[in-house]
Write a protein that binds this DNA or RNA. Structure first.
Lengths: 231, 231
DNA sequence: GCAAAAGTGTTTGGATTACACCCATGC
DNA sequence: GCATGGGTGTAATCCAAACACTTTTGC
């Protein structure tokens, strides 16, 4: 099977790139960093790094995520792997994209050792990025859009306590279409939510009820006969 | 961003593994090869190979596929990437899985320079495989099952000229449930098929009409308003 | 004629859609 | 009271499931 012996084969490098999505001002945003070294010095890019010798891919993505955001325990989703021989000007670097979702995309991410400058960019206003990062970002966003409709990951993007309208707006955004309020609520009835009994504050209209996702209940029913999360 | 300079970083190896699915005797089968070298000498495995220095990942998968089956022009689908540091006993090898679908899984694949022994194995009867290949095969089969319902790839698995019942049997197999004949036919009505005017031969009952997939028509309507291939 | 599978129509019930209406809050 | 968005019910419509029935072939 392996025609080439491992020992006298040439060397590659391997990296992971970690697309971090947030929902901010009614739009999906991605976290971008400004590169502080060549190649592509001062270009915007998706955060990424080479994988360490004994590090699993997902661990490498977690490391990048934690260093950048100081948040751990986030769910990571593997996306596509990009291996065009010319994608990196300095040599052969194959990269696997991961994505993570974070709540409260409003929080300020400080410049760290990791990156001088960091910013949120609405997914439809992304500038030209380093390497093939536009390609990576777009294909990863496509995957996110698909998964939002079949896995309960919208709750990783929404605030811990959210209104049904916030949830609807998220789906209207990714679906690029408006939905009927009453029908949306009927559609999500099978999804286990906890009505918190609390209400929105400081709004100049009738305050909406706050909900949170009932993940325990979800895990309980997820395996059952025909249950399938679906928007 | 890249903390480690490419030049003084250690070396990995990178491979692709190519799961080849066929539909044979009413079952999904995967093509397995018997390894002719260490490690895992004489174990069954998914065909795969290291990626050449200037080779794109998909090209590597195509190369494996062509050498093994003598068929080119097959559609390849990227699946997951596996990078556990201990997945290969001889060193760090990260691998990306691809899958391809072939018609007429009945044709005999000869032993080649590539592999001494080759066989089709029904997906539910796969033995213990080399490396983490059971994991790779299972996750790739899961992906196949998903894609069959949302992309017109069942036609890469069915004969060029197929009966509607053959198509239904494929979906019953992957869905692990029986479907109503009349309802199945109603469900696939939006899918562009060409009624060939020909009939099954040598069956001892009423012969079924033969169809083929109208890929031109499909490409035409695929972009239209709300059209979405769906079973 | 009989067995076996092809092929099609009808009825029914549940889900989706469109739309209308009422409610709670700030100003 | 009015503007704004929250929240819910109903009727019409579409879709999918269940099922029955007819057709065509080989023996």
């Amino acid at each position: 099977m392996y025609k080439n012996d491992l020992n006298n084969f040439f060397s590659y490098s391997f990296s992971v790139d970690c697309v971090i999505f947030g929902f901010k001002n009614g739009e999906i945003n991605a976290l971008m960093i400004k590169r502080s070294k060549e190649p592509f010095l001062n270009h915007w890019a998706i955060p990424g790094d080479l994988v360490y010798p004994n590090e699993d891919l997902q661990d490498a993505a977690t490391r990048i995520l934690t260093e950048l955001t100081n948040i751990s325990n986030l769910h990571l989703h593997q996306a596509q792997t990009f291996g065009n021989p010319n994608r990196h000007p300095k040599g052969r670097v194959i990269t696997t994209a991961y994505f993570a979702l974070i709540r409260n995309a409003d929080f300020q991410i400080e410049a760290s050792s990791f990156a001088e400058e960091v910013k949120w960019v609405p997914i439809h206003e992304v500038p030209d990025l380093a390497f093939d990062h536009n390609l990576i970002l777009n294909s990863t966003y496509d995957l996110l859009k698909q998964k939002l409709f079949y896995e309960p990951i919208c709750f990783d993007l929404l605030p811990e306590k959210f209104t049904l309208n916030q949830m609807q707006q998220l789906f209207e955004y990714v679906n690029e279409s408006e939905m009927d309020k009453a029908n949306f609520r009927k559609k999500i009835r099978p999804i286990p939510l906890i009505a918190l009994g609390e209400k929105q504050q400081n709004v100049k209209h009738r305050p909406a009820k706050l909900f949170s996702f009932d993940s325990d209940k979800y895990l309980e029913i997820a395996g059952e006969d025909g249950y399938q999360f679906k928007i």
